[in-house]
Amino acid sequence: MFENCLVIVLVAILTYLSRLLPFYFKDMLKRLSNVDEFLKESSASLMSALFVTSLVSFPLNVKGLASSLIALFFVFLSYIRWNNLGISVLIGVLVHWLLSVI
């Protein structure tokens, strides 16, 4: 309990600082030409890593993975259509659930 709360508070402080500090160091950040590029690439790479590790588990469950991939296809279509995070999440969960009860 204490450790979990400590993790939450630490993440909260560091998240807040990552949002706040650029307001005070905006000129310095602007001068570091490669930082912007690195942060953008890092964000994409991390998101990809989190995505694959949450999607795939070992030993491989082929049926489960297939259900997830089909649901993600519908998520993709809905996101293209409505560009709304909430709707896409709802559709993803719903399709995944329907495939699991079929």
Binding site: T15, S18, R19, L20, L21, P22, F23, K26, L29, K30, V35, D36, L39, K40, S42, S43
Partner: peptide, 8 residues
Amino acid sequence: LRHLIYGS
């Protein structure tokens, strides 16, 4: 860390 870009 991407927030550094947003804030900036």
